[in-house]
């Protein structure tokens, strides 16, 4: 692609990398990603992908900015409390890099709308905070054949994995069914040290850039577990499960049904 003088300067630290160059930056500029959540994970993910010059980033979130978000959700501010998160995020991202098209979708993902949303995008990124969405996104990506970066944080621990349908494991190979509501930490038991989603989100952003560039090894068949208190990163092998209900040899989930909603606390 042809770069403007400003783009040559803006992306110069990418272009001088042998693994990126003008060709790699061209791939980044042509990429379209679909991000679920403009919260603790979605903020750093979209911030760095916008800085990197990803061509188009859609962000879906139906929430509004709350004072309690600001300890970790770095796109939002005291001034945007009460505004939809996707709008608060879009304003900051547009200021950061006008090259990037930000599509703000104030909506809730459902089994009915998700496939329509992701069909025009190359990569899906899950920055959601609940199990029903996590399983819905996984199943939709497997059915649609879309690569997925999945991240999660709780208290002092974070997890990241990268799902490339047909070429590795999926979320259900790892945890076949959603945990029952009683086993999921309640709001009071939750809590998260604010930097943690920043670390996990930036790892996800890096995975997405590697998927776009086709360079390095992504966390395929692997779950990366970060323990912030001990400062350890552990990689756990996750083999593809041939009996997986969605990506196995004889899948039982072949379409998205409406069984994803469970009675979890969503705060």
């Amino acid at each position: 692609m042809e770069f403007t003088d400003d783009q040559v300067v803006r992306y110069s630290r990418h272009i001088i990398l042998p693994e990126v160059g003008g060709k790699g930056q061209g791939k980044i500029s042509a990429a379209k990603v679909f991000l679920i959540g403009a919260g603790g994970l979605g903020c750093p993910i979209s911030y760095y992908l916008t800085a990197a010059g990803v061509g188009k980033i859609a962000i879906v979130d139906d929430d509004v900015v709350d004072l309690s978000n600001l300890q970790r959700q770095i796109l939002h501010s005291t001034k945007t409390i009460g505004r939809p998160k996707v709008e608060s995020a879009k304003a900051v991202l547009n200021d950061l890099n006008p090259d990037v098209e930000i599509v703000a979708i104030k909506d809730r993902l459902t089994p009915e709308n998700i496939l329509g949303f992701i069909k025009d995008y190359d990569i899906v990124i899950d920055g959601s905070d609940n199990f029903p969405t996590r399983y819905l996104v996984n199943d939709a990506c497997v059915l649609a054949g879309k690569p997925l970066s999945s991240g999660a944080v709780l208290r002092f621990e974070g997890q990241v994995t990268t799902i490339v349908p047909g070429k590795g494991h999926c979320y259900r190979c790892l945890f076949e069914e959603m945990p029952p509501a009683g086993l999921v930490p309640s709001c009071q038991e939750g809590g998260v040290l604010g930097v943690l989603p920043g670390i996990i989100g930036t790892l996800q952003a890096m995975e997405v850039l590697k998927l776009i560039l086709g360079k390095g090894d992504v966390l395929k068949n692997t779950l990366l577990i970060y323990d912030a208190l001990r400062t350890t990163f552990r990689k756990v092998k996750v083999p593809k499960n041939p009996d997986c209900p969605v990506c196995g040899t004889h899948p039982t989930i072949t379409a998205l049904c409406s069984s994803y909603e469970a009675n979890y606390c969503r705060a």
Binding site: F3, V8, S12, I15
Partner: peptide
């Protein structure tokens, strides 16, 4: 930028 231009 000397190298960036040359490389591109």
């Amino acid at each position: 930028y000397t190298f960036v231009r040359s490389k591109l």
